Structures are given as structure tokens and as C-alpha cells.
Computed example of a mutant assay.
Amino acid sequence: MSQAAQNGVRASAIEGVVWVKSRHSNGDGSCVEVASLDGGGMAVRNSRFPDGPALVFTAREAEAFLSGMHEGEFDFIVG
């Protein structure tokens, strides 16, 4: 199902993916998890609500976001 995953789908309904959270996660369950989708896309979910909705991004959207993150464009969010 991962190829057909749409925004807002229950994260637990995206079959065949492995959800990963950052090693920087603080252990209280409050973190974001990501999963790689077929075709290079990415799904994101809130680890506190694993059956909640997932945000689904195309490969190009994921690449743009991750590139911006690596370059510090979003540091103001937690800074």
C-alpha cells in the first residue's frame, strides 16, 4: 500500500514500511517518525499517535524539505 499512501491516511495502514525515529528522541514518546515509501517518497507521523494520520510527501518534496533542514533553514522552529 505504500505506493498509494495519501495524506491523512492512518499511519498504521501504510503497509510494508519501517517507521524510524531520531536517535535524539528524548524517550518520552514525543517525537516524529518517518518511513521511506516506494518511489522515494516519505511518510511522517507523530510517535504518540501511531494510528493517527500520516503526512505523505513525494520524493521531490521530501528532498526539498530534507535539503532545507540540512542547511539550517528551519532552525528557528526549535531555536
Rank of each mutant, 00 (worst) to 15 (best):
G52K: 00
E33H: 07
V9F: 03
N46P: 00
A59D: 05
E61Q: 13
A64H: 04
F74W: 11
S22Y: 14
A43N: 03
E71K: 07
R23G: 08
R48N: 04
G16M: 11
A5I: 00
V78R: 02
S30M: 05
V17C: 01
K21H: 10
G79P: 00
F74C: 08
S2G: 10
M1V: 06
G72P: 06
D28M: 09
E71Q: 10
A35E: 12
V34A: 09
P53R: 06
G40W: 15
G79K: 09
V78G: 01
M69Q: 14
S25L: 05
T58H: 08
M42K: 05
A64T: 12
G72N: 04
S67R: 06
N26V: 00
E73S: 11
D75N: 01
V34C: 06
E71W: 06
V32T: 13
N46Y: 14
N46A: 13
G40L: 12
G79V: 08
A62D: 08
R48A: 01
E15M: 01
H24Y: 15
A43M: 09
G41P: 00
M42S: 06
F65L: 03
M69E: 15
S2P: 04
G39H: 03
G8T: 12
T58F: 12
G16R: 11
R23H: 07
C31F: 12
E61S: 09
N46R: 12
A11P: 02
